[in-house]
Design a binder for these strands. Structure first.
Lengths: 103, 103
DNA sequence: TGTTTATATAAACAGTATGTGATACTCGGA
DNA sequence: TCCGAGTATCACATACTGTTTATATAAACA
């Protein structure tokens, strides 16, 4: 699953934000999304896992999820390339570059 | 349309990347996606417009698209909050914070 | 061993996204 | 004023996503 697609779903971003505070069991994560059923949360966790954004380990009957380091780096790096478009103090540079390539 | 959803589609990221080089007409943008028909590209441009990521102006019969400054800032800022998860030299701080909140 | 708890998977379904061909709109020029 | 170029919209088919209910799996425990 593509990382950008995985992150496009608001509930999945809630799950990631919860995991940013440290490891969480599937049950704790389900509690973070009270509007969703348990299978729905489980499905979202699977998507996040297949996108390489989270990892799981078993702890008895619990499944403990954690953030996968670097999973979001691709998203960050892609968006970072556009920083100059909202950094006011770089506007002059931006226009200079655009003019050079005839944009 | 939500910015995260708009950006999840690969073809739309190609369009944004093309616009990062400066203004482009709809025709030039359609040429950047040879596998898609003109209506398909037009539709993607509409999605980007409704997400606040691009803006248009008329130039005769052409439609000239440009990036909307700040449109991607939300994505950047969200992803940036996770930087500590792939910045090795901050691992100690990360673990310290997680321990403090019982993660 | 039977039951409860925690979680994942399966099946089904509604809603939405994406793509295509056809068509409409609009501007510039002969 | 008619025509062609550039672009958007329409109508429709198809595929995918997110959700739910029902069920399976597996560990804990009495």
């Amino acid at each position: 699953m593509d990382v950008f697609v995985a992150v496009a779903e608001p509930n999945r971003r809630v799950l990631l934000d919860a995991l940013a505070g440290g490891e969480r069991t599937a049950g704790e994560l389900a509690a973070a999304l009270p509007d969703l059923t348990q299978p729905a949360v489980s499905h979202h966790l699977r998507v996040l896992r297949e996108a390489g954004l989270v990892a799981v380990r078993a702890d008895g009957q619990r499944r403990v999820y954690r953030l996968e380091p670097g999973g979001l780096e691709a998203v960050y790096l892609w968006a970072a390339r556009y920083r100059r478009f909202w950094s006011a103090h770089l506007d002059a540079l931006q226009r200079f570059l655009e003019d050079r390539q005839g944009g």
